[in-house]
Design a protein around this nucleic acid. Structure first.
Lengths: 151, 151
DNA sequence: TCGAACAAATTAGCCTCACGAACTATTCCG
DNA sequence: CGGAATAGTTCGTGAGGCTAATTTGTTCGA
């Protein structure tokens, strides 16, 4: 139900941020709990970025994922250990390490996109078509927000 | 497989879950980074639940927050230590511990709802009115999703 | 009535995520 | 050549969350 007699003013918008904060925090917890044990949310995010932008240097990946370098070292270490990423060292500048998705990594991502029985998918299927449409639009906005540079 | 591998109709909805998963994971990271250092997202969520439903037993709070009891012990311990919650032991059944928000806790929550310069608020203010409206609607849906019982 | 079963919360030990500070390796440049 | 800069890594810390085991308290039935 979407109508608390709110006039055109931005009354609703005024408490949008706190509501969104809580909703994202709680949903994140839910997603973690129901996540594929082989691939945490952070790993999933990194893997998706590498697929999209790889081969990519670790530094660039850290910027895209918006985490500090040590976090990427650890994350990509796990993904490599799982055979989902492969690392190559730039021979013309051996400080630079690039990672790239492996076939196994791509396959896992693909499976992941098709998970039809995960918590979130089940929930979404129970929504009305209109609600799903609203979330589809919101997802695009949230993706943009998350990707924007700080400041 | 699901009944409908239908054409254009819910094509967008089909990859909604993976997109939402990533968006929530990434946005959550952003929110953590820009969170008030005095109150993590988990603490904020628990505090808000206690305000809404308190006085409440720790077990009930765990169910609402959808975490295991040890997590609530730790969380409420921190909130109590910070003076945001107060605990009372039920004298008719001393196993039962209830927590309740303190004036300081309520004040902190209130301030939190008004944070006008936090990352998320700044970002939201830059969106179009239509985008904010879309997010407002989405926030309501996401809140419901996050609050639903499992299964 | 007292001991066993149950219930609520806590403790202990483990793992991931993420950070800052300090360090290593490499390259660049004056 | 030797210092400064750049890319990554290591180390130690803390939050968040889990399971398994334990403690504390209550209830119930033989």
């Amino acid at each position: 139900m979407a109508a608390d007699s709110s006039p055109a003013r931005n009354t609703a918008a005024e408490d949008l941020a706190p509501r969104l904060r809580l909703a994202v925090a709680r949903l994140h917890r839910r997603l973690r709990q129901s996540a594929d044990p082989n691939l945490t949310l952070s790993q999933l995010s990194a893997l998706a970025s590498v697929e999209r932008d790889g081969p990519i240097t670790l530094g660039a990946l850290a910027r895209i994922e918006q985490v500090q370098p040590p976090t990427i070292t650890a994350l990509s270490g796990k993904l490599e250990a799982a055979g989902l990423l492969e690392r190559t060292i730039d021979e013309s500048d051996r400080r630079i390490h690039r990672v790239e998705i492996t076939p196994a990594g791509a396959k896992l991502l693909e499976q992941h996109r098709k998970r039809k029985n995960a918590y979130l998918d089940r929930r979404l299927r129970r929504l009305t078509e209109a609600d799903r449409a609203a979330l589809t639009r919101a997802a695009a906005i949230l993706e943009r927000l998350a990707a924007e540079d700080p400041q």
